[in-house]
Design a protein around this nucleic acid. Sequence first.
DNA 1: AACCCGGGGGT
DNA 2: ACCCCAGGGTT
Length: 361
Amino acid sequence: MNFSEKLIGWFEKNKRDLPWRKTKNPYFIWVSEIILQQTRVEQGLPYYKRFIKKFPTIKDLATAREDDVMKQWQGLGYYSRARNMHCTAKEICKSYKGKFPEKFEEILSLKGIGKYTASAISSFAFNLPFPVVDGNVQRVFARIFGISDSSGFAVAEKKFYSLGHKLLDKTNPGTFNQAIMEFGAIHCTPLLPKCNHCVFSGDCFALKTNRVKEFPSKKIKVKPRTRFFYYLIIKAGDSTFIKKRKGNDIWIDLYEFPLIESAKALSKNEILHSAQWKNFFGNISVKIISISKYQKHILSHQLINGQFWEVEMPSGTKIKQALKTFQLVKFTNLNKFPVSRMIEKYMVENGEGFTKNNRGK
DNA sequence: AACCCGGGGGT
DNA sequence: ACCCCAGGGTT
């Protein structure tokens, strides 16, 4: 048996029953691939079901409001994925009459679709012979063939794609690609791979040399940056101020409360005398209703300490220019706006009229 | 080529 | 505390 026969033999016995494996609709496959980038199947599955129900066709997605698209993504992370999908849906309507392109180069040219996703869609939906190389495939290849180059670098990438092209079953690329990723995801796992009963046990370099733990070689990780976010929940009757995040930072296009940010922890006094506080309130005396404990919010690359201040401005206060750049929104309407997990968690526990995003189970 | 972008779950 | 995940865009 060759590589592909062993692999697909294993796949047919062990594959999971997943909704995107039952369709050839390139739009559904695209949605699933984007959701599953850097995201586990169990976490992405409810989002996938909700997303294609809310936006059943490319046109539905293209004509949706940005806030509605972001709301569907709320809590998933890497929000540029949602922005890029929205943009690409519009592009497909404009340049391809709403029909998903069927050529690899066309698919690859779309925003948010790189080499991996273009290969996945091409092979799954159109049975084109492009090998997928994701984290799973790299781990499987690294172990079986003893590739010690650190993944993420050009040399390693060339070796992985070269192997992929060589081993790919050209008569059935879609099944081969799904099989090798599934094999990495549930058999040749990062920790505790099931080497004692493996179809490649006779071929695997790492196993034969008793060096499974050394493959794939680890990449150097960056030290996360620490930040302190002080969010002001300003009570103005039954309303409060929010604004969409912009710029070149995390959580772009999600909404948040007026924010005082610092690279180090600030005391209550430091906040009350900060330039940012004065920018919002000037010298008027604001009533502080409550100050929450720090909420630690961990991202892969940042550690954010969030603190929520509930404050009330004296009635009849003239609103400073800084606050005029915000939207005044009723507490009961906060649910309509996509927010980060950190804000969602706080509001679910303490906010008025805010319920958890319905993301299934 | 290096850096940036979230969040969750496993160990 | 550390690991990893069906990666892609920007600089």
